[in-house]
Design a protein around this nucleic acid. Structure first.
Lengths: 247, 247
DNA sequence: CGTCCCCTTGAATGAAGTCAATACGCGTGG
DNA sequence: CCACGCGTATTGACTTCATTCAAGGGGACG
């Protein structure tokens, strides 16, 4: 059940079988399902658990008073909602299922137990939360500096790399269950312009995107077009040095 | 020395005198100074300490290959660089002093000691890091959805609120030591357009901004113009309920 | 006194938004 | 079974917001 999470965290560290078991158990504790386009958490809610995404896509979003909406981040399998979110009194944004979604609710107690007893997992969770912050900063760069063309290309690169880190790609292909409206609300462009820009990306021979299936024909060319430098994802097996006393 | 930090964290919790002393000591340990426009940390550096900003302004920024630059966040007195940054192998961005800056370097060991022995501080540091993440998300909304006018107004509102939380405002006035170039690189607009938009804000009677001094003539009107909702700063004395067994 | 940085202004250009219409697939209910 | 509505993708024409280019002014500093 926690295999996506484990796979992702093992980009950073090497787990013992006990570590893995602890994570598996955590993912089995309280499993919930959401329908597509259903709110998982609403602005104003008091967070009581950490959510581990087991399957499906979701996003954080915020709405302005006049209806403009911004998607602030995506959750894919293996992702966690902010650890220790309980520190805050109430949510300042909402989380929406973009597909049917399965999450495991991890209680505060369980998380504290892990923090105390499983230092390797704790370390890995720190890593994951720092990477999440790093992604959010990169989105700032994306929205602030990149052109429409680069922006969408960058988003697709990032999603591809993240999906690959949890094993949800085959070769140059992955599923991106987003509408053009979603993409627009992510990169701050109108739907019409997203449509035209996607056509440019297709026209440049960089991608195929149809029926929610993305194919990146030349990943290196795509990265260049997007000015995409994956170092902010910190996926380069950085912490394998922490390795593992196997127990 | 740590008074800005303490003041900020006490938005969230109430410290004992021991807590305060621990923070004061941490801020005195290793103090460093930087000149204006000097890099404090460079992309590629291996982080060894957490930096606590004691005085002056700094920013995180990232440069694209072709020279475009984006400021991703600001550090003002009382702010901390990512706790537990040591988990990552190397910095994916740089930090630049915008004015003369004083920082206290907090060692990994000291931080771990605090984590173990000072739960109230630990809790407060969690709060601060969640607020930082929340700010970064709000910047995504700012860049993605708001017009130039709203965007700059929003930035100024945020900075005003953050400065007020550490006592660096007088009435409706504060110091904002940013050039129009800085503002442009923050909100993703050209310098020329920043200039014109600031004139609009002045023309609308909302602000005075001259010689780095910002006056907000009508904070409520300004917030409305910016679609600024301060809840994402989680400053509303949220956790005072955690209050304090004074010891 | 000259240089550099920062702020300001005008005019021309360009990128992206808006408005409007069409098309397609899907599910629902008559 | 078909009609209808709805969400999504697409296209064209026009508008607007923001960038670019270019130039000038003021203050700080060597």
């Amino acid at each position: 059940m926690a295999s996506y999470l484990i796979r992702k965290l093992e980009q950073f560290t090497k787990f013992s079988s006990t570590d893995r078991q602890v994570l598996e158990d955590a993912a089995r504790a309280r499993v919930r399902h959401f329908r597509s386009r259903e709110d998982i958490i609403r602005e104003g809610d008091e967070p009581r658990n950490v959510n581990l995404f087991l399957g499906g896509w979701a996003c954080r979003y915020k709405s302005l008073e006049d209806g403009r909406r911004q998607i602030m981040s995506y959750f894919i399998p293996g992702d966690l909602c902010d650890l220790n979110i309980f520190v805050l009194r109430s949510m300042d944004h909402s989380i929406l299922a973009l597909t049917p979604v399965t999450v495991a609710e991890i209680s505060r107690d369980l998380l504290e137990d892990i923090t105390v007893n499983q230092p390797r997992i704790t370390q890995a969770l720190w890593w994951e939360s720092l990477v999440t912050a790093s992604i959010q900063r990169e989105w700032t760069v994306n929205l602030g500096q990149r052109t429409a063309f680069e922006r969408i290309a960058h988003l697709l690169c990032e999603l591809f790399f993240r999906l690959r880190a949890v094993g949800l790609t085959q070769d140059n292909t992955c599923e991106i269950p987003l509408t053009q409206v979603d993409i627009g609300e992510t990169v701050g462009l109108s739907t019409v312009h997203v449509n035209r820009t996607l056509q440019e990306l297709r026209g440049a021979g960089l991608i195929t995107l149809r029926d929610k299936i993305l194919v990146i024909h030349d990943l290196e060319a795509m990265q260049n077009a997007a000015l995409f430098n994956p170092n902010y994802l910190h996926l380069n097996h950085v912490g394998r040095h922490l390795d593992a006393n196997v127990d």
